[in-house]
Amino acid sequence: MTRHLSSLQFMNTFSTKLEKALNNLQLAQYPPDAVRTMRKFTSTEVAALLGVTEAYIRQVSLKGQGPEPETTTNGKRLYSLDQVLELRMHLAEKGRKKWINPRRVDGEECQVIAITNFKGGSSKTSTTIHLGHWLALRGYRVLAVDMDPQASLTSLHGALPGFDYREGDSLYSAIRYDNPIPTDRVVHKTHIAGFDVICAGLELTEFETAVALEMRKTGGTGFLLRVSQSLEQVTDNYDVVLLDCAPSLNFLTLSSLTAATAVLIPVPAHMLDVDSTGKFLELAASYMQILDAAGSGAHWDFAKFLITKFEGNDHPQANMQALMRQVFGDDLLLNAVAKSTAVADALTWKQSLYEVQRSRFSAPKTYDRAIESINAANAEIEGLITAAWGREQ
């Protein structure tokens, strides 16, 4: 029997067609001459971000101190994110509120957080982008690193000026064995002040082959240090580095876990997802045992599970949440991230919820519920970061 369908022709045909269609869609969203900008924030939002009252923000503005906000026809004051950061630093100089400038000080190590789980669809990228944007809005200097060849985190940032993974503009260029380049050359500024990215591309898959060849030559576990050595070149510029890992426990993920000072494991409260997470932990434990024996074991400030895509009125999910609480105890974050069409819509627009105006949603209350759950989870994670620095809560 002769099979008529060529695998090569099928893959080539549809990879080309899909790439063209997605490129056209991206050009429609972000034309080559377009400059992507972050939305502006009301004085109410600014007060919440800074942890002060809106009246105090208004008083500072009326005194002519700090940045001059835009005033709308109805009297609303709007601040750009750069102005929010400027205002934060202005208030920090007065020293009235401790940690209003939250950036780390001498003696506090840059926190490198690996967001990982080898179950696809567990919201690793959504968790990374929303946590990263939250921390940037709070005044931290954040670097997000796309560790996944599928490059979802990279795609969410639209057309970054000058980025082309086919030209080696990805993390792989900084961690490869042959002629690695300085890490700062693959760091991209984004339209969000305080939030930078290192992008990914298909060439990241070459790391697996390169490690296998290197291990055949030299043996040992030196590959585990490739990511950490690369990040050490730039961590002085950041307070937090987020590693958005691929949905697999490969050499790159193991290298990420070794580089990490903390780990976050997103898990939807579904039987298949929890079961898959159990297998991930079992496999990871077997690898870690080997690494410990070789003297290359990883040690973290914290490792936590985060329930994602949660529907509290779904009884099977509520039961699974109770089981997870029983099993994981304090290592399960108290706050779960709710499943929401608002999040799905925002990601379709290649934005986080923090980038989208509330008025853009047809059902603003859906946005309110989503942002409330995301804020709560992010605030809890921020607390873990500052606790690792030894700050008073």
Results as ranks from 00 to 15, higher is better:
residue 5 L to I: 15
residue 13 T to Y: 01
residue 15 S to G: 00
residue 15 S to F: 06
residue 16 T to M: 10
residue 22 L to H: 09
residue 23 N to S: 15
residue 33 D to Y: 04
residue 37 T to Q: 15
residue 38 M to Y: 03
residue 40 K to Y: 13
residue 42 T to R: 14
residue 46 V to W: 12
residue 50 L to A: 04
residue 52 V to M: 10
residue 53 T to Q: 11
residue 83 Q to I: 03
residue 86 E to F: 02
residue 87 L to E: 11
residue 91 L to G: 09
residue 94 K to C: 05
residue 110 C to D: 03
residue 112 V to S: 04
residue 115 I to A: 00
residue 117 N to D: 07
residue 123 S to C: 13
residue 126 S to Y: 01
residue 131 L to G: 01
residue 147 M to Y: 02
residue 148 D to M: 05
residue 150 Q to A: 09
residue 151 A to D: 05
residue 152 S to Q: 12
residue 153 L to N: 01
residue 154 T to W: 02
residue 155 S to K: 12
residue 164 D to A: 08
residue 174 A to P: 06
residue 175 I to G: 07
residue 210 A to M: 13
residue 211 V to S: 06
residue 214 E to N: 14
residue 217 K to F: 05
residue 221 T to R: 08
residue 227 V to S: 00
residue 235 T to Y: 09
residue 239 D to Q: 07
residue 243 L to F: 08
residue 246 A to N: 10
residue 254 L to D: 00
residue 256 S to E: 00
residue 258 T to Q: 09
residue 258 T to Y: 09
residue 263 V to H: 05
residue 265 I to G: 00
residue 277 T to H: 00
residue 278 G to V: 06
residue 281 L to F: 13
residue 281 L to D: 03
residue 284 A to F: 14
residue 288 M to Y: 13
residue 292 D to M: 07
residue 292 D to S: 13
residue 293 A to I: 10
residue 298 A to P: 12
residue 301 D to F: 10
residue 315 H to I: 14
residue 319 N to T: 12
residue 320 M to Q: 08
residue 321 Q to R: 15
residue 322 A to N: 05
residue 329 G to D: 08
residue 355 E to T: 04
residue 356 V to A: 02
residue 357 Q to G: 15
residue 362 S to T: 14
residue 367 Y to T: 05
residue 368 D to E: 15
residue 375 N to H: 13
residue 378 N to H: 05
residue 386 T to S: 14
residue 391 R to F: 07
residue 391 R to W: 04
